[in-house]
C-alpha cells in the first residue's frame, strides 16, 4: 500500500515537474524543475530496489549536470520578453506533436497493462546493487567500458581542437629556466664613479 502510494506520488511529481521544465518561461526555473524531476526519478529507482542507480542519478545529474546547466543559463543573456512571444506561436504545432506522442505512449502503456509483454527479470536479493555492478562492469562489459572511455577521449580531443589557440609572442613562465638561473646570469656588478651616473 505504502509502496503504491509513494510510486504514484513520485511519478506524479516527476511528470508535473518535467512538464514545468518546458512550460516555465524563466530558464532558471526550468533548471530547478529539472532537478525536481531527477529527484523524483531517483525515488522511483529506490522503489524498484536500484539504490545505487538512484544515488548515481542524484550525484551525477543533480550534483554536476544540473548545476552546470544553471551556470550556463545564468551566463546567457536571455531576453525574457522575446521568449514569451515565441511560446504562443509554437504552441499549436507543439501541442499536436505532444498529443500524438501521448497517444502513442498510452497505446504502449495499454499493451503493457494488458499483460501482452514481459517485464525485466527480477534480481536476486542476496547481493547489493554495487556488488552486482562490480561483478559485470569490468568483466562482461569490459570491452564496452574501454570503448566508452575512447568516446570520452574523442570528446576531449574535439573540445581542445576547437577551442585551444596558440598565440604568438606570449611570454610564458618557465619554472626550469627560473631555477637554472645562477647569480652570474641575474646580477651585474657595476663600478660607478661618484657623481658620474650610469649614462
Amino acid at each position: 500500500m505504502l509502496t503504491a502510494l509513494s510510486f504514484y506520488l513520485l511519478s506524479a511529481v516527476a511528470v508535473a515537474a518535467a512538464f514545468m521544465v518546458v512550460a516555465s518561461r524563466n530558464p532558471v526555473h526550468s533548471v530547478m524543475y529539472l532537478i525536481l524531476t531527477f529527484f523524483s526519478a531517483a525515488g522511483l529507482f529506490i522503489l524498484m530496489g536500484a539504490e545505487f542507480l538512484a544515488l548515481l542519478l542524484v550525484l551525477v545529474y543533480v550534483g554536476a549536470v544540473a548545476v552546470l546547466f544553471l551556470f550556463v543559463v545564468m551566463m546567457l543573456d536571455v531576453d525574457f520578453v522575446e521568449l514569451k512571444q515565441g511560446f504562443l506561436s509554437y504552441l499549436p504545432i507543439g501541442a499536436v506533436v505532444a498529443i500524438v506522442l501521448l497517444l502513442e505512449m498510452v497505446l504502449v502503456g495499454g499493451a503493457y497493462v494488458a499483460g501482452e509483454t514481459q517485464t525485466v527479470v527480477e534480481r536476486g536479493q542476496e547481493l547489493s546493487n554495487l556488488e552486482r555492478f562490480g561483478a559485470v562492469l569490468y568483466t562482461e562489459y569490459g570491452g564496452l567500458f574501454e570503448a566508452a572511455g575512447i568516446v570520452l577521449l574523442v570528446a576531449m580531443i574535439g573540445a581542445i581542437v576547437l577551442t585551444l589557440r596558440e598565440r604568438e609572442g606570449v611570454r610564458k613562465q618557465n619554472a626550469m629556466d627560473q631555477m637554472a638561473r645562477t647569480r652570474k646570469d641575474g646580477v651585474e656588478l657595476v663600478d660607478i664613479e661618484p657623481g658620474q651616473g650610469l649614462g
Partner: peptide, 16 residues
Amino acid sequence: LSLYIGIEMQSLALYV
C-alpha cells in the same frame, strides 16, 4: 549497447 557506443564514437569525431 555496442551499437550506441559505436555511433557516438563515430559521430563525435564527425562533429569536430
